[in-house]
Design a protein around this nucleic acid. Structure first.
Length: 414
RNA sequence: GUGGCUGUAGCUCAGUUGGUUAGAGCGCCUGGUUGUGGUCCAGGAGGUCGGGGGUUCAAGACCCCUCAGCCACCCCA
């Protein structure tokens, strides 16, 4: 830390950026509420174990991306890299098992020690939902519909594609995994270095490789469809027909995978071409094995998370803030009166900007800069008459308004 | 963690083969207007040239290291 600067990969949210983030979260929260997904908040740090056990010792997040530290009591704590683990932990430790299904919406910062690039930060923000305790495909459909509704409300659904895949049940996936290992091992000389590593850790990931040589090998790789159990196929068909019923379009992407064992059945991502290499905007899936993996009773779950920064990048111009009315006081008495009036008018529901000092010229200049719709001028002349001057800053027209009539007069600016 | 590109005023950027006091536009401040903004005119403030080291008579420019940003890989929101 040679210099006063933000930590790499972190970002201040100021002005319009802050407003845009808030607007996204608020829009999402409101829609989630309509679906019955109520707010829930878990700590931004947990015992390291919570993430280690849920995410698996071989995942990238655990092996190299966690912000882990020891607290003064000697416990190993970790800044949360994602939201699901904490909620799953709360389900177990908070006795929420008796209140299933749990439907929740969460938002907040996440932390991953990655190299920053477009759409990727070390501290970023997510919104997300979880539906825990529902094993039916209608739960998957509901979660996806909720995500689509939020994207639609933000005006960006049409810029995204919903990619959909099934990871089957554990048995199907184990057999498929074995088949892949056999196939890729036979072609190991043609694989990239990265994919050779993946072959050890997570063979399904090879299917998702961007490497041209890998792609050639992948073309003839075994397809999951041949290994899918009847139950898994039935489940996936039900999800698909559910989406069809409510008119949500999707593309099947057999290469869309999740590494960890507790994932099952549905995997989906809303992706876009608009964000460069980090095209995933909202992604999730079913994690029926998660809570059991953490030491709880077998409990099904499905959910997703979306990156607020990525959503914000797609939004472009934000809706302008409501135009305030500026109060400009001249002289001591005038300034005192603006303070009193500001309080009164704000309590009457108007957006008021108090221009603390500096006289009329400066006051009007500032009123203009903050995009005020009107300025209320109060000086000795006005005080003597018991009125104020209301200047429309667009037309330049001015009116002498008795203080008693002011609220009515200003109704035009609401 | 790996690779490529880039760091000059609050912002966007010029700055010639190394040459004297580092510039522009926008923004900001002041005045023209002792009670009238947005336009115009005049003036002004604002720079460790990301940081450190080196080469040189001389470095914003060249070399090395480092930090940061961007983009990509990896991975993911």
């Amino acid at each position: 830390m040679a210099k006063l600067q933000p930590v790499r990969g972190t970002h201040d949210l100021i002005g319009d950026d802050a407003r845009a983030h808030l607007a996204i979260v608020e829009a999402a929260r409101e829609i989630a509420d309509r679906y019955g997904y109520g707010p829930m908040s878990t700590p931004i740090f947990e015992f390291t174990d919570v993430f280690q056990r849920t995410l698996g010792d071989t995942s990238d997040i655990v092996t190299k991306e966690m912000y882990t530290f020891e607290d003064k009591g000697g416990d190993s704590l970790t800044l949360r890299p994602e939201g699901t683990a904490g909620i799953a932990r709360a389900v177990i430790s908070g006795g929420l098992r008796n209140e299933l299904p749990l439907k929740c919406f969460y938002t907040g910062p996440m932390f991953r020690h990655e190299r920053p690039q477009k759409g990727r930060l070390r501290q970023f923000h997510q919104i997300g939902v979880e539906l825990i305790g529902v094993a039916e495909p209608s739960g998957d459909v509901e979660a996806i519909a909720l995500g689509a509704d939020i994207l639609d409300a933000l005006g960006i659904l049409s810029e995204t594609t919903l990619e959909l895949n099934t990871l089957g049940d554990g048995e199907s996936r184990a057999r498929y995994r074995d088949a892949l290992v056999v196939y890729f091992t036979a072609h190991i000389d043609k694989l990239s270095d990265y994919s050779r590593e993946r072959l050890q850790r997570n063979p399904l990931r090879i299917l998702d490789s961007k490497n041209a040589d890998d792609r050639a090998v992948i073309t003839d790789a075994p397809v999951f469809d041949d290994y899918l159990s009847d139950d898994a196929r039935t489940f996936f068909d039900a999800v698909r027909s559910g989406l069809d019923t409510i008119g949500i379009a999707y593309t099947l992407n057999p290469r869309l995978v999740r590494g960890l064992d507790y994932y099952s059945h549905t995997a989906f991502e809303f992706t876009t071409e608009a964000l460069g290499a980090q095209g995933t905007v909202l992604a999730g899936g079913r994690y029926d094995g998660l809570i059991e993996t953490m030491g709880g009773p077998a409990t099904p779950g499905v959910g997703w998370a979306a990156g607020v920064e990525r959503l914000a990048m797609m939004l472009g111009e934000t809706a302008p803030a409501t135009r305030p009315i500026a109060l400009v006081g001249m002289g001591e008495d005038g300034e005192r009166e603006t303070v009193r009036l500001a309080h009164e008018l704000r309590r009457a529901g108007l957006a008021i900007e108090l221009l603390y000092k500096g006289g009329m010229k400066r006051g009007l200049k500032r009123a203009d800069r903050i995009n005020a719709a009107a300025a209320i001028l109060i000086g000795d002349d006005e005080l003597a008459k018991g009125s104020v001057t209301v200047r429309n800053l667009d037309s330049g027209e001015q009116a002498d308004v008795a203080i008693a009539d002011l609220t009515d007069h200003l109704a035009a600016y609401r």
